[in-house]
Design a protein around this nucleic acid. Sequence first.
DNA 1: TCTGTGAATGAACACGTTTTCATTTTGTGA
DNA 2: TCACAAAATGAAAACGTGTTCATTCACAGA
Lengths: 346, 346
Amino acid sequence: MNDRADKKTARATADQVAREANVSRVAVSRAFNPNASLKPEKRDRILQVARALNYTPDMAARSLVTGRSHLVGMIVPDVCSPWESQEIDALTTALQAEGFATLLFKAKADFSMDPRLLTYMRGFNPDSVIAFTENILPDVLCSFLDRAVPIYVIYDDVKQFAGAASGTLYDRLLVRQKNGIEQAVALLQGYGARRIAYLGGKAQSLANAERERTLRETLNERGMDPPVVLAGDYTYDTAYQATLDLFRIGEGADAIFAANDVGAFGAIDALRHELGLSVPDDVKVVGFDDIPQAHWKSYNLTTVRIDLEERVRALVRLILMRLRAPDAAPLTETLNTRLIVRGTVG
Amino acid sequence: MNDRADKKTARATADQVAREANVSRVAVSRAFNPNASLKPEKRDRILQVARALNYTPDMAARSLVTGRSHLVGMIVPDVCSPWESQEIDALTTALQAEGFATLLFKAKADFSMDPRLLTYMRGFNPDSVIAFTENILPDVLCSFLDRAVPIYVIYDDVKQFAGAASGTLYDRLLVRQKNGIEQAVALLQGYGARRIAYLGGKAQSLANAERERTLRETLNERGMDPPVVLAGDYTYDTAYQATLDLFRIGEGADAIFAANDVGAFGAIDALRHELGLSVPDDVKVVGFDDIPQAHWKSYNLTTVRIDLEERVRALVRLILMRLRAPDAAPLTETLNTRLIVRGTVG
DNA sequence: TCTGTGAATGAACACGTTTTCATTTTGTGA
DNA sequence: TCACAAAATGAAAACGTGTTCATTCACAGA
């Protein structure tokens, strides 16, 4: 109780530190700003007093005057999906090292975005925003943001968002899926697959749409039939059921190209544990992402990798460059994909 | 460019709204505070103008004067682990509905906490803090927090943290692992297991220590031998290797009780795919957590469930109650565990 | 010693809110 | 109509910081 009462007054301010150290409050501010001009010995003394008083500059007050919140907003539809959680983890670590904290928001599971969520986020004034949910147009997102310039992850088709108002500024991370998909198709073709099924992700997902489009294009270029398309939603259970349907109701397939690794796991388990088929002897399976689970022995999945570290580095680069030059022309970083060959094709 | 220039002035303030609506700035503030006294028609008009101007109250400025940041800090060692990511997801959703945003911080992977991280977090003035990394004592954590009262997840042993300074205030979520572990041991015993191995989690994890202690106690109560303990770290790869060692170098076991589901997966894969043993015929496996992957057909894991929704509800309840009564006596919520029987014991 | 240059310093202001408090308006009962 | 309580209103203060700007200080060169 006594302790609690003390706590009420415990939060030290710059004024208290200044008084204690016999300096002006401005000096305290400067002590915490490395490139401000302040006598070194004075700075040391101030920092020492600050530590004794357990003083930390208040970010809210700081952001009020500097206009920088040191917050990076992330809007995610599904934090628990392995790929997203990996990315959030790596991104948070990288941004933390640069002095930014992660502000996490959960969009609705169907990838749509509640306008109230955007309004809500706006109140926190994030310095940058990364939208992991893909179907909100730059125009709309920007109208809810002030200083922050949004970053979009764009797959293959550079012309995407061409319909956006020409004045709208956003930065792009361009993921070239073509390489990886081409390698995967070549491998499947080499092992004799003729009839390929595409096990889709969420219908609203642009990544999914582009993945299917690029697969279709690649099959066509290599003189193969267009894919049988199975509706999915990136989850294990839906993929499992869709695979059962394909082989029980539909006409089956030589190979399944899944929109993500988790979907591939569902397909593999349906084939092996319910349909009694062998992977890869009867049916070959390829995934997308290369999440950590892909190398687990039960799956040992051949998959198209998007290199996570590269991807995070690119995103952080975009954020920092944009913050350094808020009015610069649109920035673009490019990322390649490549096939990781394991045991589900052969 | 023109668009960018406009943006500089785009962020509307309460003053602008007030001017536009012919009211005082105070009225605007009240319009956004539902229980402030304001003529309904006036409030409507203000809100309408606010929407037209795309105005949102600035959280930083608001928090400066109210002392409430509407931020909940979460310190996590490993966002990508399925259990943590599930919990972050559910907690973020629940808190969002209550008007709190999630501020995510990444602790070092070895569960230790950089003091600079705490200092850094302190600057954001979170209303509440949840530490998913377990080995930082309340005394230490509180010394870095001001208004926020930390929440600790405590397993079984209520006397934990008894060594903390008596004045230190923290709230507790008490997880009764005993039930679930007892059910698991009974099931294993019923199927004839005699020699049980405990596949541990991170050595520094209190959850892990208590899980082992409770298992040992339960085995003893039921007249069984103490467990063979395998060092682990909650990861698949380490569990895989530890299981190989147990059967190649060590003396094997009838059953493996893993500290978490992911570890159980590693054990199962090592047994089936490298040691040529059958699960559950040769070796039985029990996990802990019941993450979504536990029901995947390749594993179909029998495991001790900590009900996530219940857990999140309890945590949110603790946060809200503490915010409502900052000086209340320590709060405690209790959570039970129970066995989910699937196919890895039988 | 004098001058000039750049670093070091602090007073005052600014950021965008909510809260307090004193005042005005509205509504109710006699 | 009057009196009184309750609701509605706005001016001013407060929250804790960074920045601006004018001033002072330290030091090197002549």
